[in-house]
Design a protein around this nucleic acid. Sequence first.
DNA 1: ATGCATGAGTT
DNA 2: ACTCATGCATA
Length: 359
Amino acid sequence: MMSMNSKQAFSMHPILHEPKYTPLHSSSEAIRRACLPTPSLQGNIFAGFDETLLQRAEALAAVDIVTQKSHPFKPDATYHTMTTMTSMTGTPTSSPAHLHHPSVLTSHHHAHHPHHHHQPAQGLEGDLLDHLSPAISLGGMPTAADVASGASHAHSHMAAAINHAQHHHHPHAQAVNVHHPHHALAAHASLASASAASMDAEPDPRELEAFAERFKQRRIKLGVTQADVGAALANLKIPGVGCLSQSTICRFESLTLSHNNMVALKPILEAWLEEAERAQREKMAKPEIFSSGDKKRKRTSIAAPEKRSLEAYFAVQPRPSSEKIAAIAEKLDLKKNVVRVWFCNQRQKQKRMKFSATH
DNA sequence: ATGCATGAGTT
DNA sequence: ACTCATGCATA
């Protein structure tokens, strides 16, 4: 069941990020917070031309099939179960992370923002064809010797907790994260921030960018993989900080996280880096043990044609109503929830940082 | 390195 | 039902 299609080409969508952040501004959230609901219409309007619009969008979307590449391999990617794994030794990447508990790093936000914004108008004419090529590449994965983590073992942890955070009041960035037993925390004094380097609270994109780069460099130098870093974070025992996935570390390094998220993670990774280097200096030895387990989740794969349609719809209306989503889902023969999540993720992507140089 | 997904916390 | 921070499963 589910739709399993395969193929996902790499299409990155155009990130239309915001113009520039003003680092010195008040909240950092304001930066990305600028979304606009645009609730306007479309409830019934669509009813009328819904079909027309959808078809039009689809038609337009269909046009751009030029660069789509098809994969020679595996037409359907969604299945295969491996019940027995545990044999991936060889690569330095530690893998299993286990742990299942959503940690909570939160950020918070408030709500007030006069949204006005541009909204991609619905002139679907050429907007659908924008595609961009991802340009990030790179890859180096030196094999690592593990030195990073501290203790090992990790399976049982149950931590729990959620914490939430914090303060608000000042328009400051805060995003503190982590889950921590029960609330509270935060005393924060805020204010006066001060300097810069090791503290947090500095919404300066350039600094983050620089740190991310340094971090990656040092990490590689230490011969530690992204996954190792994530797992090792738990050993730091920083209040509320548990481990993070390879994905998150990767995203941090490539700056593909929200600004708030970057700011929140920076001090944590910074702490790990220091600790790792210190540990390396004196001793390094810690076998890691992981056992892993089970539980496989199936990743739904949306086929290229459907994906194109979704992109077309998104260009017209990034926030379709529930009914709309249902209609689209039916049309594309996808589960409604899959479509809903796709839109959510699309919106999230659009908001991602990816600040380039500007400043 | 990324796509699809889950969940806490908001709205 | 949405946003955000994250993660598993994959390419």
